[in-house]
Design a protein around this nucleic acid. Structure first.
Length: 616
RNA sequence: GCCCACGUAGCUCAGGCGGUAGAGCAUUUCCUUGGUAAGGAAAAGGUCCCCGGUUCGAAUCCGGGCGUGGGCUCCA
């Protein structure tokens, strides 16, 4: 990944920060809608109709409001409006009440067909400029389909429910800004989001889901369990890993590095900065400038740059010696810090930050080796996913679109690279969806898409094929026949960025990490002061056995200590009272609340094994 | 960056239509020595995000910042 970044979704060239969270709303549901395809998905129809109901209510309450578009989305719908004076979430109650009233009135959704001119007249009369624009830009032919709901008129293909009375189980959720037709340079409209369901039960379930999502949010758990913090004195997007979080990260890094070493990677350490010149050569200084920190300039003329990617450094490693085909493939890896000045409005907890450590590697190989290296990279990402518990993800083959200026390289190189990625996926029996226009500028990539607790999609792992950087840096190796040949580069981030991986894992486990990762693996609590010495001995023994153990010798009742340990999601709670001292056993309680008497040796052995196996 | 909301003790939050502020939990101390999800008491803890303005007086009103959260491709 690395160079480009499947990471934040911003490949060097992806100035637009493509796969932002908004994508969730467009998946599936909207895909065909945009192509003017009618749908008969009842849920889709219900939500789209509720969007009309919303617009009808808004235009009644705010007669001069202009409406834009209002499609169904994941779990609900939205509608965009231009209000003459801003509205806020406190206005949603009144709008929702009006919606319910209209729903009660049993207004039917009536489809009409009019000529283009009639439609222009109708919407013109109502001052609906955005609709006029849509008719002019989007409607082909002379027939325009509109829907009437009482006085409310909307440009729409439908279909819709029969009557507003069919709309019962909905709720307005929030307002947000959204650029008209997604273009930053155009006016920003006020988007109202809502959710709609076929039954009260479904609506209730969804509201419960939202509540749950709030509880498992990594920002909340990160605070509760003291995993990380963000302090404005340090800066936005620059999280601090507290001792507990740093422990988890250390375990992750050990695991990752050990596995990569076992797979023939060579780990290096390279500086977080380099001369600006290096990024001019790689192209970042020109093409990725908007995400880069300004160069540090010194009086002697030195210009140093915080690196946004690791690839140039790894290229320097490659070029430190003349390489033979016998050396290839060379897999140069590093958990390297990357610095990207992301737009302030996009930052979020540990998931989207301005400095992050990428589980990065660059594989330099011959064209013949490319396929195996792609497969190997996918296989590694799959292995990490399996061990870490990333059970749900989808593959996205990110290809280029037809805007020629956006991509470097020849048609042939792109086809070659893409064919290789597809073949690799298919040979491994994996299915994927296409992400047109999501490629890195130098080549296509496979992105592993995962979802956070709010079902927002983001890229974790990525595998990319690159023919361009080898060219820019004039990489070569000595081939069998003594000629100089150009290697191919594979950029891959198998476990993604540590920060984003961490945020994912926190939500995946709701803070109850597998024992091998958990910051505190065992808490030992003496029942009374009398058992304190014994408890200390138990702690000492476990600690020497490399178990992360804490002693809870507060003069509190066990109930209290157990409660606190449970809130910390500690895997094992060990209570020692008079009975244990006498029998020489421990009373062990695990996270499933099973309790058992066990000898210290057996317990230590069992936990050690669980840790070694990275069981979950 | 832009839109909306929010920013009060370490945490979760009350309150305050202008007279310098409260609870619970956490912390500290004392009492309590209790068998698996909160024992009791006391103490301590706050530039009410920051900077300006209005005012006799601002945490409260106004303006400007900063920070946090949710949104912002395409989309009849």
């Amino acid at each position: 990944m690395a160079c480009s970044a499947g990471w934040g979704g911003a490949a060097w060239m992806d100035a637009g920060e493509s796969q932002s969270s908004s994508r969730q709303y467009t998946d599936g549901l909207m895909a065909d809608y945009g192509d003017h395809e009618a749908t008969d998905d009842p849920l889709h129809i219900l939500r789209h109709s509720t969007a009309h109901l919303l617009a009808a209510a808004v235009t009644e309450l705010y007669p001069d409001a202009k409406y834009g578009i209002g499609p169904p989305v994941q779990d609900g719908f939205y509608y965009d409006f231009a209000f003459s004076k801003p509205i806020s979430e406190s206005d949603l109650g009144a709008i929702e009440s009006r919606m319910r009233r209209i729903a009660q009135e049993d207004r039917s959704f009536v489809k009409e067909t009019m000529t283009r001119q009639q439609a222009l007249d109708e919407f013109g009369k109502r001052g609906q400029d955005y609709k006029l624009e849509l008719i002019n830009d989007k409607v082909e032919g002379d027939e325009v389909s509109v829907y009437r709901t009482g006085d409310f008129l909307d440009l729409c293909r439908g279909p819709h429910v029969r009557s507003t009375r069919d709309l019962k189980f909905f709720k307005l959720l929030r307002v947000a800004g959204a650029y008209w037709r997604g273009d930053e340079k155009r006016p920003q409209l006020t988007r109202i989001y809502g959710t709609a369901w076929p039954s009260a039960r479904d609506l209730e379930d969804h509201m419960k889901f939202l509540e749950e999502a709030e509880k498992r949010d990594h920002k909340k758990i990160g605070k509760d369990l003291k995993l990380f913090m963000v302090d404005e004195r340090v800066g936005p997007g620059l999280p601090i890993w507290l001792p507990a979080g740093a422990t988890v990260r250390r375990e992750l890094e050990r695991f990752i590095v050990d596995e990569e070493l076992a797979r023939g990677y060579q780990h290096v350490r390279t500086p977080d900065v380099a001369r600006l010149e290096l990024y001019k050569q790689s192209g970042h200084a020109q093409l990725y400038a908007e995400y880069m920190y300004p160069p540090m300039r010194f009086e002697d003329g030195e210009e140093l740059e915080l690196r946004p990617v690791n690839c140039p450094h790894h290229i320097v490693v490659y070029q430190s010696e003349l390489r033979s085909y016998r050396d290839l493939p060379m897999r140069i890896a590093e958990i390297g810090n990357n610095w990207r000045y992301e737009r302030s409005g996009t930052l979020s907890g540990m998931n989207r930050v301005r400095a992050f450590a990428l589980n990065d590697a660059h594989i330099f190989c011959t064209p013949d080796q490319l396929m195996d290296e792609i497969k190997g990279s996918i296989d590694l990402a799959l292995y990490f996913s399996k061990v870490l518990g990333i059970d749900e993800f989808s593959y996205r083959l990110s290809a280029r679109d037809n805007v020629k200026e956006k991509w470097l390289g020849t048609e042939e190189q792109w086809q070659l690279a893409q064919a290789a990625l597809i073949e690799a996926l298919e040979s491994m029996g994996q299915t994927y969806e296409m992400g047109i226009g999501e490629a890195a500028f130098y080549g296509p990539k496979i992105d592993f898409q995962v979802k956070d607790s709010h079902r927002r999609e983001f890229t974790n792992s990525t595998v990319q094929v690159d023919f361009q950087l080898p060219l820019r840096f004039e990489l070569e190796y000595v081939a069998e026949d003594g000629s100089r040949q150009r290697p191919v580069m594979v950029h891959r981030g198998a476990a993604g960025a540590m920060e984003r991986l961490f945020s994912y894992l926190i939500e995946r486990y709701i803070g109850a990490f597998p024992t091998w990762l958990h910051p505190i693996q065992v808490v030992v609590m003496p029942l009374t002061d009398v058992q304190r010495i014994y408890a200390e001995q138990v702690v000492e023994r476990l600690r020497r056995g490399r178990i992360r153990v804490e002693l809870d010798a507060r003069s509190q009742k066990v109930d209290r200590k157990v409660r606190d340990a449970k809130l910390q999601k500690v895997p094992y709670i060990v209570v020692v009272g008079p009975k244990e001292v006498e029998s020489g056993l421990l009373s062990v309680r695990d996270r499933t609340d099973k309790q058992a008497q066990e000898s210290l040796d057996s317990f230590l052995d069992r936990v050690s094994r669980e840790v070694a196996e990275r069981a979950r």
